[in-house]
């Protein structure tokens, strides 16, 4: 396993994404961060923390479970569902979906459907810690912590303090495992 980001790198990426969000939206007004379970949720909170440090405002943070919107539900065993918790009405807000790794785009596709059922945001954007390529759908991120060229045989592991106890991004070759 090769480490490509350590805890400090992850924190820097989060800070930069927070700055980019503030820059693009001229502040934090009307912005809602929605983390996709599992690791999108602590990432969204970390971005909200960073925004609060820079601008002294707290943007709302929601949690989204996309289990009911997956397109492979019938091929895989019953997934446990996590909580979907959106603290504000999303209609007319600017929703930023947050996830740890962007890969095929199928999770984001499911998240877009889920958000559409919860309200009609003015816009939906996407922030990810790692973009590893290999999209199977026409989806692109608006904020990227790190572009990480990979082969499909490789595996990207993101670990975050809140979920895993430590923090960083690793890459390993499935065949050598």
């Amino acid at each position: 396993m090769r480490q490509v980001m350590d805890g400090d790198d992850v924190q820097r990426a989060i800070s930069r994404i927070a700055h980019e969000i503030l820059e693009r939206h001229h502040g934090a007004d009307g912005v809602v961060l929605v983390g996709i379970h599992t690791r999108g949720v602590p990432l969204a909170k970390a971005i909200a923390d960073a925004i609060e440090r820079f601008e002294h405002v707290r943007v709302p943070v929601g949690e989204l479970d996309i289990g009911l919107y997956r397109d492979d539900l019938r091929r895989r065993p019953t997934p446990a569902l996590a909580r979907t918790l959106i603290p504000v009405d999303l209609t007319e807000e600017r929703v930023i979906l947050v996830d740890d790794v962007l890969y095929t785009g199928r999770t984001v596709r499911a998240a877009l459907d889920a958000v559409s059922d919860l309200g009609r945001p003015q816009a939906i954007e996407l922030a990810v810690l790692v973009d590893r390529g290999h999209r199977q759908l026409p989806i692109r991120p608006d904020y990227v912590g790190k572009n990480l060229p990979t082969s499909t045989a490789e595996r990207v592991t993101v670990r975050l303090h809140d979920v895993d106890g430590d923090c960083g991004v690793w890459i390993d070759d499935e065949e050598t495992r």
Binding site: D65, G67, L68, Y69, R70, L73, L81, R83, T84, D113, D117, L118, G119
Partner: peptide
């Protein structure tokens, strides 16, 4: 979790 779904404005999910 489905109680939460039924409380939504659109109480319907696609699985």
């Amino acid at each position: 979790e489905f109680v939460e779904v039924l409380d939504r404005e659109i109480p319907k999910v696609p699985p």
